[in-house]
């Protein structure tokens, strides 16, 4: 294995982390601005031009806050929980193709950290399935009944919606005939899979909202019932880490949704100018993120039993039906869409 390859991997990994963290900072700004506009307010506009330095100001404020650890908390797990929450959110995008293959300094470089892996989707499901631990452990280790209830709620919620999410992946896999994300993007050369998979997209979007604990599924942190849910006892940078995980996950699921259903990095003239790939992906992610913010501004939170009933009795059967329909159509009309 040559040294240049290792250097390439290191640079790509650092770039991915920088993108995720900057994305997190400016997503909070984007959300506050968009929410404010939806509610006929102006939003943050004091720090820097158009309030663009607001995330920096927030960060500085959080660094100087006092960090508290409750006396009866389980200290080891209490400190580890924010880290366990952030790491899966940061690494999940490693298999995502940000573009095709570009030529840089005479090297062929594929624009994704892990390159083209034939189990890309399985990697994503594996990471999402372990991403719940941080929240559960934060809730349990705080030794606070609200935090514990938030943790338990989020476990139940994330397990329930993970099934629908996993079934949502199956539509694009069946259509593309591969679990590689590059393969799925290439399969959308003719037409985006959102056209063949309207039901699948719907299920996937709803399930991702629940998976990242966003409104109207932000049950684990329902303010009125649980003060702040699993992060009630956290303050300072540890609290910021939970927020970072939530927003990075929002970016990640939007990028995954864009890749699976909306053509990923593909767009006009992509074959001539491969560097357009990341730009197309960014635009698609921004639009999907706006959708998530819009939903938050529009819909009230579901009641907890409604949430569970919806997940198991409506979303899961619909997702199964979608898999059945997709598989059936592919069997009956081979060569359609693929």
């Amino acid at each position: 294995m040559d040294a240049a390859l290792i250097i390439e991997w290191i640079i790509k990994s650092i770039l991915l982390l920088v993108i995720c963290i900057t994305g997190f900072a400016y997503l909070t700004f984007y959300e506050r601005k968009a929410l404010a506009r939806l509610q006929v307010r102006i939003g943050p506009n004091r720090a820097g031009p158009f309030g663009l330095l607001q995330p920096v100001a927030d960060g500085i404020k959080l660094i100087f806050k006092e960090e508290l650890i409750p006396e009866k908390a389980d200290r080891l797990i209490f400190v580890l929980a924010p880290v366990v929450t952030v790491v899966p959110a940061l690494v999940v995008l490693a298999v995502l193709p940000f573009g095709g293959v570009v030529n840089l300094f005479g090297r062929e470089i594929s624009l994704s950290v892990a390159g083209d892996v034939n189990i890309g989707i399985l990697y994503i499901t594996a990471i999402t399935s372990i991403s719940v631990y941080g929240i559960v452990l934060a809730g349990w280790s705080s030794n606070n009944k609200y935090a514990a209830m938030g943790g338990i709620r989020s476990t139940a919620q994330m397990i329930s919606y993970e099934l629908a999410l996993g079934l949502g992946f199956i539509g694009p896999i069946l259509l593309a005939g591969t679990m590689s994300l590059n393969g799925i993007v290439e399969g959308q050369r003719g037409m985006w899979y959102v056209v063949y998979q309207p039901l699948g997209v719907l299920v996937f979007m709803i399930a991702t909202l629940a998976e990242v604990n966003r409104a109207p599924f932000d049950m684990p942190e329902a303010e009125q019932e649980l003060t702040a849910g699993y992060h009630t006892e956290y303050s300072g940078m540890k609290f910021a880490l939970f927020f970072m995980a939530e927003y990075v996950k929002m970016i990640a699921v939007s990028a995954i949704a864009a890749t699976l259903f909306f053509g990923g990095y593909r767009g006009p003239f992509i074959d001539q100018v491969p560097w357009l790939g990341p730009i197309y992906l960014l635009i698609k992610v921004m639009i999907l993120l706006f959708g998530m913010i819009w939903v938050r501004a529009t819909l009230p939170r579901l009641r907890y039993d409604q949430l569970m009933a919806f997940g198991w009795k409506i979303l899961l059967p619909v997702a199964l039906l979608n898999v059945l329909l997709t598989a059936g159509v592919i069997m009956l009309f081979p060569g359609l869409g693929v």
């Binding site: 399935s129 372990i130 719940v132 943790g151 338990i152 476990t155 397990i159 993970e162």
Partner: peptide, 16 residues
């Protein structure tokens, strides 16, 4: 996905 994710989450859930 199956063991470290799904099954152990259920274990933790029941314990808690």
């Amino acid at each position: 996905t199956v063991y470290a994710g799904a099954i152990m989450v259920l274990f933790l859930f029941v314990i808690m």
